[in-house]
Simulated scan of single mutants.
Amino acid sequence: MKDELLIKFLLKEANEQEKAEVQQWIAADADHKTYFAQFEKIWLASKTLSPNGKADEEQAWIRFKARVAANQSAKDSHSPVAHNSAIKSLNVNYTWLKVAASLVLIAGIWFAYNFFGDQKYTDLLAGNQVIKEILPDGSEITMNKNSVISYATDFKEERSIHLKQGDVFFDVAHDKSHPFVIEIDQVSVTVVGTSFNIRHIKDETEVVVETGIVKVASGNDVIELRQGEKVSIKPSSPQLIKETNKDQLYNYYRSNYFLANNIPLIKLTMALNEAYDTQIVINEPSTANEPINTTLKRSDSFDSNLAKICRTMDLKITRNGAQILLSKNK
């Protein structure tokens, strides 16, 4: 995959065929995902730099592109004509050209260190239990069961985490000189010192902030979340839209309470299925989306909590093998 095409993709200047080519390449291999995530991180970093100086902006951009392309030269050989053509084909927003000179240095160091250096990652799996861990930088994390992350082995210098699946609460140690970055597929979460929860199940990601400020990025879309705010990212709606967090159900694996404050019943049953390894099924959409207000103790038995839900919602239980079917009493 040519870096020129990746940059066009990040700039949202790729046509539909090129978009499909990049997306298929990313999905084809875990190493491709890692490469793209780090590549994207360079571009996102440019947005935090203050444009200054009177350097020739267009020439600075070309030098940046040449440096990025140089990392691919060991595998591919591109003619000067083709390379210059690729550069000229980008209708770059000139605001970003003002920081291109700084990006030349960032790109050279970043790619050399991350893609050709010895950076390694350590896997951390929660298994069948909720676990708490202290990372090498002093940050504390709580992982819901069946959650999987990996973190940079040299974590004090490179505070980088890949969240592969599950629910993880982060209480990040403050270190302004080393931002704490979490990669989830094509989503990036960046913080300095704060606390927040990330849920990543299949292709859906949710970030809920408890304290501080969290920056969430997807492609060229970047938003900041503060205490009590959240963002949900789905393949069907990839745009980052900030919302006020209205319930505490996401926190059940830490608080040990299922707090259902006027939320759809289906959301509560999904949390119970995760916690107790059960298969509650609601076939009636109207029942699944009906709001419920209740508080359940995680320490109570599944049957006890299920009975409380049925009393509250006037439901009956029908069992079909491992499935537990809920429906309205008629």
Rank of each mutant, 00 (worst) to 15 (best):
V22R: 09
V22C: 04
Q23H: 01
Q24Y: 06
W25E: 12
W25D: 11
I26N: 09
A27T: 06
A27R: 09
A27L: 10
A27F: 03
A28I: 03
A28P: 01
A28R: 06
D29A: 08
D29V: 10
A30M: 01
D31P: 01
D31L: 04
H32L: 10
K33T: 01
F36D: 10
F36I: 11
F36M: 14
A37Q: 06
A37L: 04
A37R: 07
A37G: 03
Q38V: 02
Q38Y: 02
F39I: 11
F39C: 12
K41L: 05
K41Q: 08
I42S: 07
I42Y: 02
W43K: 07
W43E: 04
L44C: 06
A45K: 09
S46K: 06
S46P: 01
S46G: 05
K47A: 07
K47N: 10
T48D: 06
T48P: 00
T48M: 03
L49S: 00
L49W: 02
S50V: 08
S50K: 06
P51W: 04
P51G: 05
N52S: 04
N52G: 04
G53R: 06
K54L: 14
K54W: 02
A55C: 13
A55W: 15
A55M: 13
D56R: 09
D56N: 15
D56K: 11
E58D: 13
E58C: 01
E58Q: 09
Q59D: 14
Q59I: 07
Q59G: 12
A60M: 07
A60N: 08
A60I: 07
A60K: 08
A60T: 07
W61L: 15
W61G: 03
W61M: 14
I62H: 10
I62Y: 13
I62P: 01
I62A: 12
I62T: 12
R63H: 14
F64C: 09
F64D: 01
K65N: 09
A66V: 00
R67V: 14
R67I: 14
R67T: 12
V68W: 00
V68G: 03
V68H: 00
V68K: 02
A70D: 15
N71Y: 15
Q72T: 13
Q72N: 10
Q72G: 09
Q72V: 12
S73K: 10
